[in-house]
Structures are given as C-alpha cells and as structure tokens.
Amino acid sequence: MPSPLDQPQLAALRERVRSLEGRSALNRLTLPFGVPEIDRRLPGGGLLMGALHEVAGGGYGAVDGAAASLFVAGIAARTQGQVLWCVTRQDLFAPALAQAGLPPGRVIHAELSDEATLLACFEEGLRHRGVGAVVAEVAKLSMTASRRLQLAAEGAGTLGLAVRRWRRQPEAADFGQPTASVTRWRVSVLSSGVLPTPGLGRARWLLELIRCRAGESADFEVEATDGSGRIALSAPLANRSSAPQVAGIRARR
C-alpha cells in the first residue's frame, strides 16, 4: 500500500492545482471598481488580473457598443502603465477615451488588417509584462482562441479585455457561445440622470454581469465612467421617497 504524501509534497500538489486553475499568487490580484455592491459579487473583490474578460453592448447598435468601449476604457485607465488597444476598424475615438480617464499618451493603438491578425496581436500583447492592460475589439471569439488568451494573461499577469463588436447582426449570436473568459459583461445605455436645472445629466448604463467564474451574476444601474475611470451606482432621484430601499441593483437568479 503506497505511503501517504508528506506535508511538503501535499503543499506542492495543492499549489500546482491552484496554478492550473489560474489561481496562483500572481493571479489573485484584483482591480476593484470601488463600488461595494459590484465588488462583493466578484471573487477577490474586483476584476481578476492576469485574466480575460469580455464586454459587449446590450444591443446591436453603435450607441450601446460605444458604451461598452467606454466601460472598458475606464477599467484600463485604472491599471498601471501603457494600454495596448487592438482594432480592425478606423474608428477609435481618442477624446472619448480621455474623458473616461485614458489619455492618448497611455494608449498604444494597433490597427490590424483582419481578426486573425488581431487575435495574434492580442495574445502577444498579453504575454508582455510591461503593459497595464490589453484591449481587443473582436467580433468572434472561439473557445480555443479564448483559452490561448486566458493562458497568456495568466502567465504574465496582464489584464485582457475583449470588446465584442459586430459588423452584422447574425454575428452577435457568437457572444452567447461559451468561452474561457473569467467574466462576461453587457452594457446598455439608459436615460441620463436628471439635473436640478435644465440640461444634460451624467450618462447612465444598465451594467449586466452575465457570467462570473466562481461568482454571482447581477444587474446594476450605474452612472457612466467619469474622468478618473470610475463608475458609480445611480443616485435616487430628488423627488423619490426617502424610505430605505435597495436602489440600482437587481440580483439575477
């Protein structure tokens, strides 16, 4: 009968298992949103670094797609160092990224000829330890490609953000297919907040966490990314009852 494992062997085996699951010490680092209602639903209290995350617009139009990009820009803005942003279209709008806290001086803009080349650039960028985050705008993301990206992110501890954009409506169905991403988000534009005087209030989004590995799914009504890259739960309207209530969050079951 084989002898039982001694303590050092058992500890080494456990660490190996954690590493294979993408939970090594490097990958336990997280990037909190700074919104307790959101962070408490994410393992570790924030977005896992050294991991792949997906974000898409809630609809097929350009407005929701732009909101998804701004949400990602706010996340990338709160990392340290340069941000590699990979695209196949000539429509990356630097002033909008700057308003979300990501100035042009921090962005390395890579324009690729097709999605295959973009995915290769995405993977190589994730393997580079000198960038704070890598963003790639992709229409389709297969399980095989996402696994490669996830492994690259885990190995270097780099934050990977895939913005799902579609040229045609049928391509949107690919977003429902399983991938190796740690979280999957959807962003939809809501009516802007009401100001005490006539004018345009701060933009508001419906933020849906539709998949979270080892975490919970939920919906949040939030105020859009500000100049520091941060979002906030929507404040109750001035004429709303002051009775205690849970506002701005709906748990998904």
Results as ranks from 00 to 15, higher is better:
L13M: 13
E15F: 12
R18T: 07
R18A: 13
G22R: 02
R23D: 14
S24L: 05
R28A: 13
T30S: 13
L31A: 01
R41Q: 08
G44I: 04
G45V: 08
E54P: 08
E54C: 02
V55L: 03
A56I: 08
A56R: 00
G58R: 01
A62K: 06
D64T: 12
A68G: 10
F71G: 01
V72H: 03
A73Q: 03
A73D: 04
G74N: 06
Q82C: 05
V83P: 03
L92I: 14
A100W: 01
L102V: 07
L102Q: 00
P103K: 07
H109Q: 11
A110W: 15
F122L: 14
A133G: 09
V135L: 14
M143H: 10
A145T: 06
L149I: 11
G157W: 03
T158L: 06
V163N: 01
R165V: 15
R167F: 00
E171V: 08
A172M: 11
D174L: 03
G176E: 13
G176A: 11
R184W: 04
R184Q: 09
V187I: 15
V189M: 08
G201N: 09
A203C: 10
R204H: 02
L207C: 07
E208I: 06
E208H: 11
R211S: 09
R213K: 14
A214P: 02
G215N: 12
A218E: 07
F220R: 07
T225I: 11
R230P: 04
L233H: 05
L233M: 15
S234F: 02
S234I: 14
A238G: 06
N239K: 10
R240W: 10
S241Y: 05
V246F: 09
A247K: 12
A247F: 11
G248N: 06
A251P: 09
R252Q: 14
R253P: 11
